[in-house]
Design a protein around this nucleic acid. Structure first.
Lengths: 342, 342
DNA sequence: ATAAGTTATGTGAACGTTCACGGGAGGAGC
DNA sequence: GCTCCTCCCGTGAACGTTCACATAACTTAT
């Protein structure tokens, strides 16, 4: 292909090949009603002139832009980055493009992004919702506009969702701690405003209840600020300096775990000796710690792919706005990895 | 705003408000030649009908799509994720959108992505180039098409680049090891095919030379496979089982560091006792390790922002395809953080 | 040889905007 | 009362495609 020289249109190719622009279209899109010789002549002109079709124009006429929007709340966070990678991979393999937006956990920015992306005529939206009231979805978007929420649920008819089996996963995590012999178990969990946190807390409580263990409120750290490492650190400090401190903790995300680990260091407590820890989210570092940190791994990439498949299904009218629950996986870095089936 | 009901166009709004579509356009875009009453009437109609402008159509006519393309080689990698976050943030603040593509370090997929994005009429491209020959840039894109490379350079006139001061950073890293008293220093570095690796190796050599220290080839691990944790682990195993092993190692990326840490564990060697390590890339975990891992932090988000600023400058014709070098920062997690000025 | 069918190509319109005009209403100046 | 200007607003064309037809040139059947 020759050097593309600015903006060449179908008409110029048509002139070069001595045919009409429709014929050019036929040649390019590999349609039937064209003789091989003409096709070759057109294709040569295309190549000579360095013509590249303008998909935007095609989309305007044809109606489908083959673009979906992805709104995450924090791209720099590995959970979201991996989800985004999954979305991109699946979309790409199905001929769709992904426009990316970052809400920074800010509902206003999220809403703005939804608006902007819709005006760009994306065909659907995958959202990792920020905290707060999402009723704008009802007013800002057409009633049948395809939306898939990831990690958190959006309570609207036309919104599908892809979620973790949070309750089961949390239960499994606690059961692992119990299997190590722990009975005094606490937890540091993000705000109960978040569905994931609520469900994980429920799983925690259930597991404790099933094992006849007491859930002590002074061993529970939760709240708005807990979502950041700093807040988590503070929560952990409080829990671990209690007169009767727990011997094990469950945390509900890797960001929280960072804070807890810092607290441990500051208090001079050793993991595996003074206190055991299990965390949600597998981070690249969890296996590098000494001792390795057991985690509930979320199938991040799968979640992105599943959401994209569902969304494209909805776009193409062959799928529904379901709710999908994916299992977590317990990684202890010791024996075999255990798939949570629950 | 009322519930958007499918696809409303300017003409329908015009009919509703009893004006022409041009007047609607004026009202929406806040132009001058319109009376306040008419404007209000139109805006009410817009609101009543739930009209949302179709930016795609506007872009087709107006010429500028306000979209840029971002091609990274591995989104799941935190370096790229953070760069992407920076790009998105800067683009967004300047009214541009970002279409994301992932090349998976595959030159073919990268080229495909460049093609597709160009056909979508993105106004410019930010690329974290995969390994290999990028001459397709010359043939597949118009001569003046704005491109900015990140992390690696693209040797074409119209390509700007945003890079780390690799040599200086590597030198600083080695000097830090020297300051700890080390004289037997090795390095595990990705393939010298990569510009970054070459430059970091040069920095390494320079620092060693300046300190009158010997660079021993059996203490150097490099090559194609080294870029993956597995390959890095193998390299480290070879280096650390040498009869006379080094007491300190520099690694050129966090992925490599993962491999080296695994090798250390397998060999039963303790960091801070048997061998010291310094790494490129600050990962969330580097400070969590025991002892904390000193790193050269790359200004990932800044790099993304700087690349985007440059690109938009080029797009809007007020900037050039420069080469920008950003400094790394030595994080020892001990004393104050040291800014590499070099 | 004529009607009908097939193949290959061209024409007009449309997608939803914005740009470049054109033009009417009303006031100011002579 | 006429011109000229300003303020609003409308019309036609264009952006680069694709879709739905129309049409020309050949085949094939009758």
């Amino acid at each position: 292909m020759a050097r593309t020289s600015g903006k060449v249109t179908m008409k110029e190719v048509a002139a070069e090949a001595g045919v009409s622009y429709q014929t050019v279209s036929r040649a390019i899109n590999g349609q039937e009603d064209i003789s091989p010789e003409t096709r070759d002549r057109v294709l040569k002109a295309v190549s000579d002139l360095g013509y590249r079709p303008n998909r935007m124009a095609g989309a305007l006429r044809g109606g489908n832009s083959k673009v979906i929007g992805l709104i995450v709340s924090d791209l720099a966070n590995s959970f979201h980055a991996e989800v985004a990678a999954g979305v991109e991979a699946e979309a790409n393999s199905r001929g769709y493009f992904v426009i990316l937006a970052n809400s920074s956990e800010d509902l206003l920015r999220e809403r703005q992004a939804v608006s902007n992306l819709f005006e760009r005529r994306v065909e659907g939206l995958i959202i990792a919702p920020a905290q707060g009231d999402h009723s704008y979805i009802e007013t800002d978007l057409p009633a049948d506009f395809p939306v898939v929420a990831i990690n958190r649920r959006l309570e609207y008819a036309h919104c599908g969702s892809v979620l973790l089996k949070n309750e089961e996963a949390a239960r499994e995590a606690v059961e692992y701690l119990i299997s190590l012999g722990h009975t005094k178990i606490g937890a540091v969990i993000a705000s109960p405003d978040l569905m994931t946190s609520r469900e994980r807390l429920t799983g925690f409580r259930n597991a404790m209840y099933n094992a006849d263990l007491e859930v002590r409120s002074e061993w529970l750290g939760t709240g708005r600020s807990t979502i950041h490492p700093d807040g988590a650190r503070a929560s952990a400090m409080r829990i671990l300096t209690a007169s009767d401190r727990p011997t094990a903790l469950m945390t509900s995300s890797s960001r929280i775990t960072e804070g807890v680990l810092i607290a441990l260091r500051e208090l001079g407590l050793k993991r595996g000796v003074d206190v055991d820890l299990i965390s949600f989210d597998r981070a690249p570092w969890s296996s590098l710690l000494e001792p390795p940190l057991p985690v509930i791994e979320q199938p991040t990439s799968h979640m992105g792919r599943a959401a994209t498949r569902m969304l494209i299904g909805m776009i193409e009218g062959i799928g529904l706005a379901e709710e999908i629950r994916l299992p977590g996986r317990l990684l202890t870095n010791r024996e075999e990895e255990i798939q949570i089936s629950a």
